[in-house]
Nucleic acid binder design. Structure first.
Length: 332
DNA sequence: AACGGCCTCAACCGCCTAGGT
DNA sequence: AACCTAGGCGGTTGAGGCCGT
């Protein structure tokens, strides 16, 4: 077959030899590439113009950056891809010294898998469907359980409100609960518990837990300091989109306002924890949340699983109660 | 050491678009 | 308007390297 530009010529294919590279490099550095279809003849190469162009752009160009992608570059690729999709050439423009081919390969070999491992659809950047994603959903529900547990173990008699600043990377957001509810965790009484989450993409761990407008009633003296820590990869709601539909950078402040509005939209709803004290008795109290891939088996009380998953996931607007019921039935 | 499966990445294929005739 | 050509781009392929058994 071959390209129309070179179909009549006898051209070499496959990997480039150092001699060919040398010829192409010498020709372009002294004459520029001009018309690519003329380059092979002028440079003394048995290649088609397209092949020369590709070799120059992807390998010989002097301004190419070599080596592994940095964390920052990876972040940029994910952020831009979220907006632009598989437009590799556009994405590569945000990464000086990187080519579209390089970005595409990196995406297909690394980033895609990471996103899937986090329970995200690499095409849409949204959560995978519940059935596609059942292990991750379990992890989320389990993390929330554990976060509740850790919180209960780490609370002092001080008042923690939804506005309490716990960490510079943490942006607690209040949830308006539509009605009064009270729950008890490890002897603490929680009035109107609120879900707390982190919206940033810091390289450090993100936090998740429950905050209240309550004054816990200690039933015993406890040592405490931190909320449960959830690793970044477990933070299902983190996002830091920083480009608009045209690939322009959105001002950080606008972005945060938009983000906050979206978060509020997602999280409006109530979170009711039923008899958590009883259910948490079987969980460990190390306070550390494990990474993806863990498979904590839920106990026999499937009603509790359902309640917890419903409380955690339905208010996000991502799943319906029916989805969760289906999921649990399917999982058995 | 040999083998097979998996992964990476350079290169190719084929389609699309813009510009020229 | 229709056709041709070059360049650009995203999807796909396959050689070669790595790793576990």
């Amino acid at each position: 077959m071959g390209h129309h530009c070179c179909s009549k010529q006898k051209v070499k294919r496959g990997l480039w030899s150092p001699e060919e590279d040398e010829k192409l490099m010498r020709h372009i550095t002294s004459h520029g590439h001009g018309c690519w279809s003329a380059v092979p003849k002028l440079a003394g190469l048995q290649r088609c113009g397209k092949s020369c162009r590709l070799r120059w752009i992807n390998y010989l160009r002097p301004d190419l950056k070599r080596g592994s992608f940095t964390e920052q570059e990876e972040r940029t690729i994910i952020d831009v891809h979220r907006i632009l999709g598989n437009r590799w050439a556009q994405i590569a423009k945000h990464l000086p010294g990187r080519t579209d081919n390089e970005v595409k390969n990196f995406w297909n070999s690394c980033i895609k898998k990471k996103l899937i491992a986090q329970g995200l659809d690499p095409n849409t950047h949204n959560l995978l469907s519940l059935h596609q994603n059942h292990n991750h959903v379990k992890n989320i529900a389990c993390n929330i359980k554990k976060a509740a547990s850790v919180f209960s173990l780490s609370t002092t008699s001080s008042t923690i409100t939804s506005h309490t600043k716990l960490d510079s990377n943490l942006k607690p957001s209040a949830l308006a609960l539509p009605r009064e509810c009270t729950t008890r965790i490890d002897g603490f009484e929680y009035k109107n518990p609120k879900l707390l989450w982190n919206t940033t993409h810091s390289s450090e761990s993100s936090l998740i837990g429950f905050a209240n407008d309550f004054t816990p009633i200690p039933s015993s003296s406890m040592n405490h300091s931190n909320f449960g820590v959830v690793n970044q990869e477990n933070c299902m709601w983190g996002t830091s989109a920083s480009l608009d539909q045209n690939g322009r950078t959105i001002a950080r402040q606008d972005m945060e306002l938009e983000e906050e509005a979206q978060q509020k939209k997602r999280f409006e709803g109530e979170l009711i924890i039923n008899d958590v004290n009883h259910e948490l008795a079987n969980l460990d109290s190390t306070g550390m949340i494990e990474g993806p891939g863990m498979d904590h088996s839920f106990d026999a009380d499937s009603n509790f699983d359902f309640d917890f998953m419903e409380a955690a996931l339905v208010p996000c607007g991502m799943y319906t109660s029916g989805d969760i019921m289906d999921h649990l039935a399917w999982d058995c």
